[in-house]
Structure formats: structure tokens, C-alpha cells
């Protein structure tokens, strides 16, 4: 069992919902990404998705497209991301998943990619342009290192595909809030309840909903039916608004705490002290969990 399954098992036991945060690796730079991962881990985020920048991100909206472009200008590569993960892993046990288009993985070499991902301490991989039909090679390579291959599922998939994809997905099933690409939206897709209900009948794997979630009320609404949410573009927008500012990581952390509904908890003087202590410990290389930070 890897960190993803352990995390979801614990959440289920504690009757809690997952919060998955997406970051584009290397936006605005790799050092900031590293700091953000640690910040978000200390805020109680359950899983972090690390986006691998790609020149042609055709499942992404303008926000992540732009972040990817900037990261590519910083010459971010898979190897650099692996090194970053290795460093992060010394300081937190939060599950880390890479989200990458297939071509960079294919060029790296599927086996080499899996081996390296496993050795630096990644836990899973999401490949938005790799449907389950084409994923056999990658899946078996990842399996050797106990890495999960997580699939996306959309409400327009016919029943036989839902069964196939939900069955193949490992760790959790990434369900799309609406049909389309990543990016923030005002409202959520209709029929989400019905869609999730259909998948529930097929699988007992955790269902995590992503695409277009940017507000506390979205999170609350989705969590009525889902086991958690993924927030991506909205976080990238907060990063963008704070690029170059000293308190960028804290701003992003506060935004995420706000989405999780724990911001007030976080801003109490007692909590602030605990977070400071947890951060100091993390800096010294100790593993800090959310529970430790909040007693």
C-alpha cells in the first residue's frame, strides 16, 4: 500500500474529505514550488499534484497553459522535478503525484521514468492524454515501484467505459466536475450528483472531483457527494497574483486553508504558533503532519 491509499484510508476512517492541490512545477520557479509543497502540507492538504510543464497542454485552460509556458522558459525538465521531489521527500510524507502529458514520459523512457519516480518518492502519476486503452505499458512499469496510475473520468463516458476506467484507476478516481478542460468557472457542472452516483455503483475507490473548483462553496457542494476535491487553476491564479512578493507561500497557504474551511483555525494565535513550530521543524528535515500542527 502506498502513501495515497494510506491517506485515503485514514481520511475514510476519520470521516474526512480529501483536498488535492495542483501546482505547476517550476512556476514561477522550482524553489517556490518546493516551498509551496511544504506550506500546503503543513496546511493539511491531503495530496499534491505536481504538473510537468508541456509545450502543448491540450487538456488545460489558459491559466495552466500560461504557467506551463513560464516554467518551460525556466528550463524545467522531468529530471529537475525528480530532484525537487527527492528534496521534498526528506521533509514531508504527503502523497505526491505527477500530472504529465504522455510525450515527455515517452521520451524519458517508460521504465526509466517509473524507476526514477519510485526512487525519489513519488506515489502516483496522472496522464491526461493517455486513456486506459493505451496505458498498459506505463501501468505495468509503474506497478513495479508501487506507483499508482490515476485515471480521469468524465460524465459523458458511456457505462462500459466508466466501468473500465474506474476499474483501472489506482489510488482514487479523478472525476471531472464538467466536460471540458481545466480552469476556474463560476458554477459547477450539472448532474454531478448523478454522475458520482453512477461511479459509486461500480467502485468503492475514493472519488475526487476536479476542474473548475475555486470557491469554498464549490468545495462544500462537491464534498456532499465526493470524497474530496482537486483545486488547480485557482491556486495557480493566486500564485500569479503574488509572484515576486515575499509572502507568496503564505498567501497561497491562506487561500487553500480558506477553501478547506480551516482558515479561521489557522489564524488563531495558538494555531499560528503551532504552524511556525511545525515549519521550523520541517526546515530541519523532520516529518510534520497536519495533525501534529493542530494537536
Amino acid at each position: 500500500m502506498n502513501r495515497i491509499s494510506e491517506t485515503f484510508e485514514k481520511l475514510r476512517k476519520d470521516k474526512k474529505k480529501a483536498f488535492v492541490a495542483y501546482l505547476t512545477s517550476g512556476y514561477p520557479d522550482l524553489e517556490t514550488t518546493e516551498n509551496l509543497v511544504l506550506e500546503l502540507a503543513s496546511r493539511g492538504v491531503s495530496v499534491i499534484e505536481l504538473g510537468v510543464p508541456f509545450s502543448d497542454p491540450l487538456a488545460d485552460g489558459p491559466t495552466i497553459q500560461e504557467a506551463s509556458q513560464k516554467a518551460l522558459l525556466n528550463h524545467v525538465t522531468l529530471d529537475k522535478i525528480f530532484s525537487m521531489v527527492k528534496k521534498i521527500r526528506r521533509r514531508t510524507q504527503i502523497p505526491l503525484v505527477v500530472m504529465t502529458y504522455y510525450n515527455p514520459v515517452y521520451q524519458y523512457g517508460i521504465r526509466k521514468f517509473a524507476k526514477k519516480a519510485g526512487s525519489v518518492g513519488l506515489d502516483g502519476v496522472i496522464v491526461p492524454d493517455l486513456p486506459s486503452e493505451e496505458s498498459g505499458g506505463l501501468k505495468s512499469a509503474l506497478g513495479r515501484y508501487d506507483l499508482s496510475l490515476i485515471f480521469l473520468l468524465a460524465s459523458n463516458s458511456p457505462p462500459d467505459r466508466m466501468k473500465l476506467v474506474a476499474g483501472e484507476s489506482e489510488g482514487f478516481v479523478y472525476c471531472l466536475s464538467h466536460i471540458g478542460i481545466t480552469g476556474t468557472r463560476k458554477g459547477l457542472g450539472q448532474g454531478l450528483k448523478l454522475f458520482l452516483g453512477k461511479i459509486r455503483k461500480i467502485t468503492d475507490k475514493p472519488l475526487v472531483v476536479g476542474f473548475g473548483i475555486s470557491r469554498r462553496e464549490h468545495v462544500r457542494e462537491v464534498n456532499k457527494w465526493a470524497d474530496g476535491v482537486v483545486v488547480g487553476s485557482a491556486i495557480i491564479e493566486v500564485i500569479k497574483a503574488n509572484v515576486g512578493k515575499k509572502n507568496l507561500t503564505r498567501k497561497v497557504g491562506d487561500y487553500v486553508s480558506g477553501l478547506m474551511g480551516t482558515l479561521e483555525l489557522m489564524s488563531s494565535p495558538k494555531a499560528a504558533k503551532r504552524i511556525r513550530e511545525a515549519r521550523a521543524k520541517a526546515k530541519e528535515g523532520e516529518i510534520v503532519s497536519f495533525d501534529e500542527a493542530f494537536g
Binding site: A59, D129, L130, L153, S157
Partner: peptide, 14 residues
Amino acid sequence: GGKYVPETVMAALK
């Protein structure tokens, strides 16, 4: 060849 596309497109390709 093959079909390397996001899941939302798979049903339409079928």
C-alpha cells in the same frame, strides 16, 4: 497511430 486523447473525447471518437 492509436488514440491518445483526454477521456472526455473518447466517447466521441467511438
